[in-house]
Design a binder for these strands. Structure first.
Lengths: 202, 202
DNA sequence: GCCGGTATTGTCCAGTTGGTCTATAAATTG
DNA sequence: CAATTTATAGACCAACTGGACAATACCGGC
């Protein structure tokens, strides 16, 4: 299995390098040459393994997503209650490793291209679908059915908004304030944190 | 004043054309040639009046902002109560003329470049400062001082999040749902719409 | 130690872009 | 109406980009 192994290794190295450059230079600045140089390889190898810039950036998007996904999953696995799983989703999205201006901005750059890149749109849809499904599964036991949809939209929109603002990286928004805002939104939809669920919405 | 008049006219026409192209093609796709063609002029004229692509895009950003600002201001002027002014700010930001996928996405494109463009950052800061000041002035009579800051951040983050999601233009989010979400956020910070303000926070 | 294929490189190319420059048309002015 | 300035066009260029390609290094099997 040397072929597969080295191919996957190179792909990961290149995607990682591209992810770094993306955070520093944006999509337009993420050039094959820069990525290759950052990875310590030649430009030709990028084309050889990815076939083109588009596929490279898609790999970056998938990579960034999968890192965040793993963070969330690992936290969800440690949770035992529905509320714990809900908190795990939030905590994952505001982990200090991911809620960073450069990363938020990289996401912004990718999102901005979604309407003009079919594959980006597909990936973005998948990301959103997973977030939605995670939230719904946690909310199933916490909220009456007719309230879940609005809660999911509100929570995701607030996450997105805080990420966007943090990606601009210019005002006083910090991690602690973001978490407080998320607490508020959760309280809005679920009631105060210490409230006892009113029913068993299985 | 012929000199100034024609110069300002051309600038506006070119900025308008660039704004259109930006919505369709994103920042990288907004090329001097395309903008000139859309405006029915030659490429040289763009450089002549703006000096370069950067200044052109800055004009676009200012233009987009000023259109939205005028919408908000006009609505605020029709309001007589603090709550009315607050609602006017929200309504302006979710007016059907502005809360459109292409426009939301254009903003996304511009925001994504903020960390790498000092002038973009300046403009963005000004936009945010105005939003903040508008909200604070409306909230002054509705909320105790220590609660205003969190309310402003929450409201702006929710607006940004809904714009972001709408800019992706792929899921079921629509204008009505966005407005409902904003109502929820306002209720969270201010209490139910029909509640009587508890005090006079002048 | 040779050999077949894979991994990797560096070069080359054609297209595009932002921006400069020159020529000309229009308009303003004296 | 001449002269000077302004508006506009269009050709031109240098830089850069993504991608194609051929040449070469590497490596395991025989």
């Amino acid at each position: 299995m040397p072929r597969l192994s080295i191919e996957q290794l190179r792909r990961q190295e290149l995607a990682a390098a591209a992810y770094e450059i993306l955070q520093e230079e944006g999509i337009a600045g993420t050039t094959l040459a820069k990525v290759a140089e950052r990875a310590g390889m030649s430009k030709g190898i990028v084309v050889h393994y990815f076939g083109g810039k588009d596929a490279l950036l898609e790999a970056v998007m998938r990579r960034a997503n999968s890192m965040l996904r793993d963070e969330v999953i690992s936290r969800m696995n440690q949770a035992s209650t529905p509320r714990g799983r809900l908190d795990a989703i939030i905590a994952g999205n505001f982990s200090p490793d991911f809620f960073k201006p450069e990363i938020c901005n990289a996401w912004l750059s990718l999102c901005a291209e979604v309407p003009r890149n079919r594959e980006f749109a597909r990936i973005q849809r998948a990301i959103h679908a997973r977030m939605r499904s995670n939230l719904l599964s946690a909310l199933r036991h916490l909220l009456a059915p007719e309230r879940r949809e609005a809660a999911v939209i509100g929570i995701t929109a607030m996450i997105d908004g805080l990420w966007l603002r943090f990606g601009l990286n210019q005002d006083g928004l910090d991690l602690a304030e973001a978490r407080r805002q998320m607490d508020s939104i959760l309280a809005l939809h679920l009631g105060p944190r210490d409230a006892i669920p009113t029913g068993d919405y299985t």
